[in-house]
Design a binder for these strands. Structure first.
Length: 221
DNA sequence: GCGACAG
DNA sequence: ATCTTGTCGC
């Protein structure tokens, strides 16, 4: 077993080991400029019994015109363990990506990126694995402390590691009077740009459109 | 030991 | 994530 292309059918201990080994490789990824991004994709996975349904929805950027969508159903074996989500959803997400004709320029995931115990959440893992810029966009917090962000769309506060006080992400208001989103760097993008992209993807709802549409698609029949 | 804990 | 009805507010 090598490392970036590691096996997915592994033990919990091995999964943690892989995260610790791969996490440092996130910083060697050269950051991209937003002007290079022409397409963005949103990912989501729904569950039913022992099966998962992964959905990918691709939009042009920054125009936000729907370009493509994919759905894949497959058995899910790895359990849900906070901090190890990528080992549960990674396989089915990669299977769905294989059906895309073109890999989008930027990938947005429903979960954390850098705002993770080992700085290697779902978005970071997928971004590194696919060598593509990625962003973590979660509906709830996994780790970290923060103050409530302002009430206007676009307002945000920082998410800090509770022990080191390092900035690990941002808490972004994407809709007035609605709970904020937890945005963090995935791969090859800085936090400032990640926040900008998420805001540009907001089309009147709490969730950025790529994720919102993927949610709807994964939840459908 | 107790509480927290992405989806 | 998923199980679940009505209900308050913009």
């Amino acid at each position: 077993m090598n490392f970036i292309n590691h096996n997915w059918n592994i033990s919990i201990e091995k999964a943690i080991e892989i995260q610790q080994y791969l996490s440092p490789q996130i910083e060697i990824g050269e950051k991209i400029n937003l002007c290079e991004i022409k397409t963005v994709a949103g990912f989501d996975v729904s569950y039913k019994n022992n099966y998962g349904k992964a959905a990918i929805v691709v939009f042009s950027f920054p125009e936000m015109v729907l370009l493509d969508q994919i759905v894949v159903v497959s058995p899910i074996i790895f359990p849900y363990i906070p901090g190890l989500l990528s080992f549960r959803e990674g396989p089915i997400i990669l299977a769905a990506i294989e059906k895309l004709k073109n890999l989008p320029d930027l990938l947005i995931f429903d979960g954390q990126g850098y705002a993770h115990p080992r700085r290697f959440g779902l978005a970071s893992h997928m971004g590194l694995y696919l060598n593509r810029p990625s962003i973590g966009c979660a509906k709830t917090r996994l780790i970290g402390n923060y103050n409530e962000p302002g009430s206007n769309v676009g307002d945000y506060s920082y998410l800090y590691d509770s022990e080191t006080l390092e900035i690990i992400g941002a808490v972004v208001r994407t809709k007035q009077n609605v709970k904020p989103l937890f945005v963090s760097v995935g791969y090859k993008i800085d936090l400032s740009d990640a926040i900008k992209v998420i805001i540009k993807c907001i089309q009147g709802y709490r969730l950025p459109e790529p994720i919102r549409q993927a949610d709807i698609l994964a939840a459908s029949g």
